[in-house]
Design a binder for these strands. Structure first.
Lengths: 211, 211
DNA sequence: CGCGCTTTTGAACTATGTCAACAGAGGTGG
DNA sequence: CCACCTCTGTTGACATAGTTCAAAAGCGCG
């Protein structure tokens, strides 16, 4: 499944993108900050999260190389952090930004994807969520069989709204049933993709959308 | 809490709104239809839902008099139905539509509200959800103490992602604890609003947004 | 009155969370 | 190079919120 983000417009010659590097869990920007720029992942993975008064964390989305994030204005709706080593291009000027039409398209896509996410959260079991997550991970990273899982169990748990225990148990369960194999905690082999797909449910998730 | 929907523009003289009436559970438009018009509730309540292959239903939102719904294009993302008797004004022409800027604002508001909704679904207990639902109902209908609950328990359940049993039990529980009183299943009196608010959690929900 | 709805309530079940312990990988310093 | 430490992931035993199943209670309507 491809990216549905509209192409960017404007010449970057006007303000060349700056390459920024972040380490494990370093903050790219913080919830509530004034938004002055947006980012494109070069290498590594970024995550956006919201933190709640009760100390709870919600991982909204993961961004992979080529993905764009941090487009929202005027304030950051969420905090962006590096999952492991991360390189991003920062664009400082709003002149270099999706045009208005595309902005609307972007928001619509974001809304649609958010709704699929609500479906995942509201209507699917732990096993279905994990299956769907792995499949999407494979799709998004272009992996066929050997899927890299660079984020921690805690990241996955806070994204799927489960605990690390349930994630771990569920993954073990999928292994036991022969749907996947675990070379190591960060490397999953998909053995029986059709079964995994069946488990995840037909309802494909729409691709993620930058914000 | 007020509506955050931008004001509408365009003269309705060009195409006068048409008044339509619907009865209990009649369909205003259906998921997948081509969107040719949008609606403003005059009297009664409308609900938008999504239906899933497994027969599951998700009630996305309720719309009260003055609320606008069905703005999305080019296809209906969800089905709109009447909750009891409903009168709406239909606007047939897209000329009479929020302007582009406002459209963007609307989508942003919708996205924000959807995120609060995710928070409700992902991080709150049944009791907290029901409390929040009742308070929002009161706010939206301008009720102080005597809140009308025109939708069925099934509607509420499919909106809060619980079963009718849990809804019913939870409401009974709130009664037993003296936070509310139940004159009849469709009429709740809020007795201890501060306690109800505390229960619902600080995190106020943003007002609903038409689509 | 009797039927068909919605709501309420009770009892048993189950998925997931909580608590607790252990295992393995990697890093650091002796 | 090994001993130790920390951090993450795994696993087990138990707790519990919410579901499921079953039935009764209220209510409108023919």
């Amino acid at each position: 499944m491809g990216r549905s983000i509209p192409p960017l417009v404007g010449s970057s010659a006007a303000s060349p993108p700056r390459l920024l590097r972040f380490g494990e869990s370093q903050v790219v920007y913080e919830q509530g900050d004034v938004a002055k720029s947006w980012f494109e992942v070069q290498t590594g993975i970024a995550r956006t999260c919201r933190f709640f008064p009760d100390g709870d964390r919600h991982v909204i989305e993961f961004y992979f190389p080529g993905d764009v994030f941090g487009l929202e204005r005027p304030w950051r709706e969420d905090t962006a952090e590096a999952v492991g080593a991360l390189e991003v291009h920062r664009r400082d000027h709003w002149a270099v930004r999706p045009v208005a039409d595309n902005e609307e398209a972007r928001l619509e896509a974001a809304l649609r994807s958010t709704r699929d996410y609500i479906y995942l959260l509201g209507h699917r079991s732990a096993e279905q969520r994990v299956a769907a997550f792995l499949l999407r991970l494979a799709e998004r990273t272009g992996a066929k069989r050997e899927v890299a899982v660079p984020m921690s169990r805690a990241d996955i748990a806070d994204h799927l709204r489960l605990t690390i225990h349930t994630i771990s148990r569920t993954i073990s369960g999928l292994c036991r049933r022969g749907l996947i194999r675990l070379r190591n905690p960060q490397a999953v082999s998909i053995i029986d993709e059709p079964a995994l797909r069946r488990l995840a449910g037909e309802t494909a998730l729409t691709p993620p959308v930058a914000e």
